[in-house]
């Protein structure tokens, strides 16, 4: 086997396994949080994340620049942002019908630099199943969980390309 070929294989393994991170977050504690590490610096990863959210059919309503607030207050920190997103019709409809869901809307993804890598994480909304015992909501939670996983998967794939 030529070395380049072996490296290609590594890339494939890595890619395959990054994807499985998001599809197989079902061991013990891990399932509650959807979390990936991307071996790319923050700025590129942030662009990839925003594109992935949009590609999944969601609107980004705001990006909270946590690091800017901290730095202005004199605390030293690397880049740390929170991306809020959702679908207008879902947010309008569900917030009227289930007001106690509102504190969890819009959806959010946290993204921060860790050295030259970037970590991304999101709450798995199916965590709320046991509280909101409504079939309709559970369907949304499952959908959001699935979509969030797809978004992370897409970011991981972009980074591996």
């Amino acid at each position: 086997m030529r070395p380049e070929k072996t490296f290609m294989r590594f890339r494939l393994i890595l890619l395959a396994s990054l994807i499985s991170i998001v599809t197989s977050l079902n061991t013990g504690f891990a399932q509650n949080l959807l979390m990936i590490r991307v071996e790319n610096p923050f700025p590129e990863t942030m662009v990839a994340l925003q594109a992935a959210i949009q590609a999944q059919g969601y609107t980004i309503s705001r990006v909270q620049r946590v690091d800017v607030g901290l730095t202005k207050s004199g605390y030293q920190t690397d880049l740390y942002r929170i991306v809020f997103f959702g679908k207008a019709d879902e947010i309008q409809k569900l917030s009227l019908k289930y007001p106690t869901l509102v504190p969890y809307l819009p959806l959010k993804i946290v993204i921060f630099a860790e050295g030259e890598d970037t970590l991304i994480l999101a709450n798995n909304m199916t965590n709320l199943d046991s509280f909101f015992r409504k079939r309709e909501l559970r369907r949304y939670f499952r959908q959001w969980s699935h979509d969030t996983s797809r978004i992370l998967e897409r970011v991981a794939t972009t980074a591996a390309d």
Partner: peptide, 23 residues
């Protein structure tokens, strides 16, 4: 910000329930 900073030092994942928000 002080609390936030301490929280991030403790666990960088806390952004999931920050910033403080009342609805």
């Amino acid at each position: 910000f002080n609390f936030l900073y301490e929280a991030l030092k403790t666990d960088p994942r806390v952004g999931l329930f920050l910033p403080c928000r009342v609805t």
